[in-house]
Amino acid sequence: MEPLRQSILPKPNDTWESIAARNLGQLNQDVAIAQLQSWNLHIFARRVLTEDGELQQPILPSDIVFIEPPKPADPAD
């Protein structure tokens, strides 16, 4: 089958840092995290209010996390 845009399902307690280190280890960590966040606005734009009234941006265990940018449209399509 044709490869899809690459994604992962998070491991327990994953953070942007741990995902960047595992999947984009060849990049500077700050750059890798910024790229990950830009490819995953469905997660990065999330705001969750905790019981203490604190706003968090959790990566949820069920999230799809893209580890590459969107594929360009196929001109053949």
Binding site: L9, P10, P12, V48, L60, P61, S62
Partner: peptide, 10 residues
């Protein structure tokens, strides 16, 4: 807030 099922791991 996310519903409980969204906190389920694989």
């Amino acid at each position: 807030q996310p519903v409980p099922s969204r906190y389920a791991c694989t």
